[in-house]
Amino acid sequence: MKGLFNRKPLSVLIFTGVVISLIQSPAAEAGRIFGAGYVFILTSALTGIIVDIFFTAEFIAKGIKSGDEDGFYRYFFKRDGWIDFLNSVVMLIFVSVPLIVITFSQWSDGGMLHFFLILYGISPALRILRILKLSSILGGETSGMASRHTAYIANSAVIVLFVVAFLTQLPGYGNSTGILSIYFCAVIIVILFRIIYRRHFEGTVSDVITVIDRGLRRRNYNLQARINDKYADDEIYKLASYYNSVFLPAKMKQILDDKRVRGNVSSKQSSSSE
């Protein structure tokens, strides 16, 4: 989360959109379950469609931009493009548009209304997929190991919860309030993995690897890897221990014994040009 608001204005706008959609989704669901008034439902429907149109525009823009960079395929499958798609086009078609049509049902004929009611029937489960967008935002713009691993876990958990929610909507299974519980479970899972577990992963795995990698590559880099005594038996810390106590001392000898550093070059060289 740190530095989130230091980003470009567009990123802040996207983050605001995510927050609004995360509030709007359970609010709309709660309104449906507890029979909220027309104004509440209308406000919720309009907010939802505005956010989804905005995300659809974002998805299209990113898709076009990716064509100029490393390709749409890479954006869609490797850089959370599929999450953007689910949270824009899919939400617009299956959640926001049906809700708007139902809200303004007096303008629709009976056949069309029935079609949108069917579509809207799966919207509670689909809304859980909005949390994938939260996961994507919390991952930041880094493509590091910690981000990828925590994304994999958090997104898998959200998809499992989506399937569970979908099944509870089938006739004879579960109830409507169960969907809300699943929705909040998904939010907690994403926050746990993408913030708390990610920090743990960085501290105990990826940061240590980064330090060792720099020590191996950069001549002047001699920082030791910090070893967490609690996990000293982990393979990564065994490697770090070897790097600290064998590799770096040998590197120090090599650098300080270098004739340029040790200063054993004959002074003839310097005096000859004077």
Binding site: E202, G203, D207, V211, L223, A225, R226, P249, M252
Partner: peptide, 14 residues
Amino acid sequence: EPGAEPPHKSWFSL
């Protein structure tokens, strides 16, 4: 740097 000991401490340790 996260994951690294401070530079002076590292050098004296080595």
